[in-house]
Design a protein around this nucleic acid. Sequence first.
DNA 1: AATGATCTTCAGGTTGGCTTTAGGTGATCT
DNA 2: AGATCACCTAAAGCCAACCTGAAGATCATT
Lengths: 221, 221
Amino acid sequence: MLLVEDEERLADLVKGGLAGEGFAVDVAHDGRDGLWMATENAYDVIVLDVMLPRLNGYAVCSKLREAGDWTPIMMLTAKDGIYDEAEALDNGADDYLAKPFSYVVLLARLRALVRRGGRERPVSITVGDLVIDPAGLRCRRGEVGIGLTPKEFAVLHALARRPGEVVSKSELLAQAWDFSYDGDPNIVEVYISALRRKIDLPFGKTTLMTVRGAGYRLEAA
Amino acid sequence: MLLVEDEERLADLVKGGLAGEGFAVDVAHDGRDGLWMATENAYDVIVLDVMLPRLNGYAVCSKLREAGDWTPIMMLTAKDGIYDEAEALDNGADDYLAKPFSYVVLLARLRALVRRGGRERPVSITVGDLVIDPAGLRCRRGEVGIGLTPKEFAVLHALARRPGEVVSKSELLAQAWDFSYDGDPNIVEVYISALRRKIDLPFGKTTLMTVRGAGYRLEAA
DNA sequence: AATGATCTTCAGGTTGGCTTTAGGTGATCT
DNA sequence: AGATCACCTAAAGCCAACCTGAAGATCATT
């Protein structure tokens, strides 16, 4: 699991206790580190304090959800603050716990979260008869499954989020590659080419179109 | 939200439960009523059973989409029937749930759908029967798609933003070309010519008119 | 360490859109 | 009528953008 908590004492306490229960605990001490660790690794569950330096818990939570990460999240809310439980759940958390909390309750709730195995699969995106399942990194056209590499999938996903619209090469770079990728932008063309070979050519379709000088567009027709 | 479900017992159950969660629930008992209520009111989300009297769920869904209504739709599919999830998604649903379903799962999915706020409504400019879609760099007259180059599109876009008004050649230059374009202004005429060949000539219309000494005007008639 | 999969770089080939050119048309003025 | 001006448009050259096969680099797995 990942614990994002800035109060050292509390973090150590929880980590120590949960480690004894068989959890492998990573700790991040501020929101931005937490977000980064959560995106880099696949945790079974994430415990997220609301009040965090650099990026608060709500922001971390909604950014993860936006990115298609549906790892179960438990939020730790300060009871008396301006933050409240409703906001936690609205931001995509699966459960919340008001501070101060009992260790036993935390443990019980965490076990429940892990057992539930996260929320149900997030909705898929459909563009014509092409169905993209962000959670499963799967896609299919009609009834035919299509095997994609992670990178190919990321590019397709970025395009499918805005069907019919032109997505520029730099937008694709920003979404499918690291924030500041300084390599050859030609790599986008390489992946577009690979995608066409998989999602269009075998079906005799041309849904992934080049808009010269502007970007690429994924069409339903 | 709008719930379209013919089984009275299930409808009442869901309505009661969701009302307690803060949803305001309208219920329709067959497809045609559901379609009518959906078009008359703006719901945040629509839950749609597949097997419905008078008009099945798929039909309701695709009719709504055809009418330009992009309210998030969750389909309730019978697991064992001839209907399946793929068909639901292909018909424009945003999510589906197989019967029998757990109430908690339904609630979680509905929250996710509402939070996503539905799909973006496409913004496009219409001048007569000419439709310009800036996001997709596409345009069509009536039902006929027209292929434009980025430059052609930029010029048309500049004209279409002020339908019926005269746009001067220098304004077109400023909007469609770089700030300090020092080439031959004749290029505007070249592009006007190309546009006429694409958006007017094939349709026997003359909507792109020259106003000698002043500029060009795009008319609805 | 070896293997296979995936990611990235590279380079040659191709295309398509932008721009210029130049001759033509039609309006306007003297 | 003739001259002038603004505009039209077909054609052609050029260049950046794009495509793609292949090879090298990286990563994960055995």
